[in-house]
Design a protein around this nucleic acid. Structure first.
Length: 425
RNA sequence: GGGGGAAUGUCCCGAGCGGCAAAGGGGGCGGACUGUAAAUCCGCUGCGAAAGCUUCGUAGGUUCGAGUCCUACUUCCCCCA
């Protein structure tokens, strides 16, 4: 199991491994030489499993998505495995306590949402290197218990399972680990075996917490099929401050546009910490490495240019060039030229109500600038609320049509970054 | 089966003599400083315009008054069997 140090000196022959190493995807790998040789010889199939615990993927999964994208770009076949079956059990690997179980209907809806998130990144189809999406419920659901035990159970020893990190954690911390959760690793190993049999899948990617699960799958394939399979784990992406990436103000940074607008998505990348710019450019864009190096080397305020490029590139990948340019233009207008752009997030308000006057707090809360009216009030008292760029400390003040500017809208801002246009209709 | 302990502000951790909208952290948000960064410092962090209303696992009870005391229930942990 080569760790980072060994990987740093490894000279890959295949495009796949070269690109993944250069771009900083790989954390650990099993038999990197063997995998590199296989990938150099011809197309291989590789998969990543995704939980169906939410109706969209968020930025935290982007590392995995980009990994599959690069796999496809270097001439191999990506398999997106939806955990329709395993989600009913719940992956305990990086959890300190059990998570709630979801119903079939919720899981099915989540899979649909996630399917959309993948569309911009991979080419799906039936060709040799086209991506496919499969659902492990297809084989796990109808697996009988006795069959499960005979087929898979015989290959796993409790002795070994007890040494896994998450198992030890639960036991050491005296947190319950249910038998159901304990079985998760067998199910995931079964997935790898099943994909190996069905479509010759020989490689599994996963986050660093998946190492144990992946290795178990490789062992299972060796024992039952006498074939070699490989595993690669990717870095857990954290910000330079050590925070797990993808959580911000309003929670997770979702990929689906209806849950997180392209404008917000652009802003998310624009606000990257200085120290992360180079790493993120490598991971989440397709700019040449020489260009990445140049941008990452910018100092002081100049690095803001690199952040804009990062935001443009990342937004283009997900939402397309047009959406990215619109978001960039709106930001440029609002932050650099101090003028308004109709591309800023806009919230409509009843014209007749505005005629009569509406407390600012109500409008701010309804527009999503604050979670409640009380919060909007406190925001105003703290000097964080501005109406048409003028600080407004009295959140009870009535907003009327007189506050509309020449374009007939009211600019409402919470802090420096959250700007909303209020448009009477 | 027996015995002991735990559940607190719908983000997390966590104090809490019967007068508590409830200490303190973390996180988050806002302000200052900057570069829409980080670090640092300051403020805010249940709902409500207010009167007031609703919070401490659930349901009852004692009390002028209960997170705090009593009873039952639920869930979790530990020890014994």
């Amino acid at each position: 199991m080569p760790a980072e140090a060994d990987l740093a000196t490894f000279k890959p022959k295949s495009d796949l491994i070269r690109v993944l190493l250069e771009r900083g995807h790989i954390y650990q790998a099993t038999d990197i030489e063997g995998l590199d040789a296989a990938a150099a010889k011809g197309p291989i199939s590789a998969y990543i499993g995704f939980d169906a615990t939410a109706s969209s993927l968020h930025v935290g999964s982007l590392m995995q998505i980009m990994t599959l994208r690069r796999l496809q770009q270097t001439g191999h076949k990506p398999i997106v495995l939806m955990g329709g079956g395993t989600t009913k059990v719940g992956d305990p690997s990086d959890k300190t306590s059990a998570r709630p179980m979801l119903t079939d209907a919720v899981i099915a809806a989540n899979i649909e949402g996630i399917r959309k998130a993948f569309a911009p990144f991979l080419t799906f189809g039936s060709g040799a290197t086209d991506a496919v999406m499969v659902n492990n419920a297809d084989w796990l659901d109808r697996l009988g218990y006795i069959e499960f035990l005979r087929e898979y159970g015989v290959h796993f020893t409790i002795n070994k399972m007890l040494t896994l990190e998450f198992v030890r954690n639960r036991l050491d911390n005296e947190q319950p680990l249910t038998f159901l959760e304990f079985n998760y690793m067998l199910m995931q190993s079964a997935d790898f075996l099943e994909l190996n049999r069905r479509m010759g899948c020989t490689l599994q990617f996963g986050g660093s917490e998946q190492w144990g699960n992946i290795v178990n799958g490789i062992d299972l394939i060796r024992r039952t099929e006498a074939k070699e399979a490989f595993g690669i784990t990717t870095h857990l992406v954290t910000t330079a401050s050590g925070v797990k990436m993808g959580k911000t103000v309003d929670g997770a940074v979702w990929l689906n546009a209806d849950m997180r607008s392209p404008y917000d998505y652009w802003q998310f990348w624009r606000n990257t910490e200085d120290a992360d710019v180079g790493r993120f450019l490598k991971l989440f864009t397709e700019l040449p490495l020489s260009e990445v190096a140049r941008l990452a080397a910018l100092q002081g305020a100049e690095i803001n240019e690199a952040k804009k490029i990062l935001a443009n590139e990342a937004t283009t990948l997900l939402h397309g060039a047009e959406a990215a340019e619109t978001a960039a233009a709106a930001a440029r207008a609002a932050f650099e030229e101090g003028r308004l752009s109709s591309d800023l997030p806009t919230v409509e308000i009843s014209g007749t109500e505005l005629e009569a006057g509406v407390p600012i707090a109500n409008v701010a809360a309804d527009a999503g600038l604050a979670a409640s009216r009380g919060e909007a009030r406190r925001l105003a008292q703290g000097g964080g609320l501005r109406v048409n760029d003028v600080v407004e400390k009295d959140a009870q003040r009535l907003l009327t049509t007189a506050d509309c500017n020449a374009d007939g809208v009211i600019k409402l801002a919470a802090g420096k970054k959250k700007i909303v246009l209020i448009r009477p209709v």
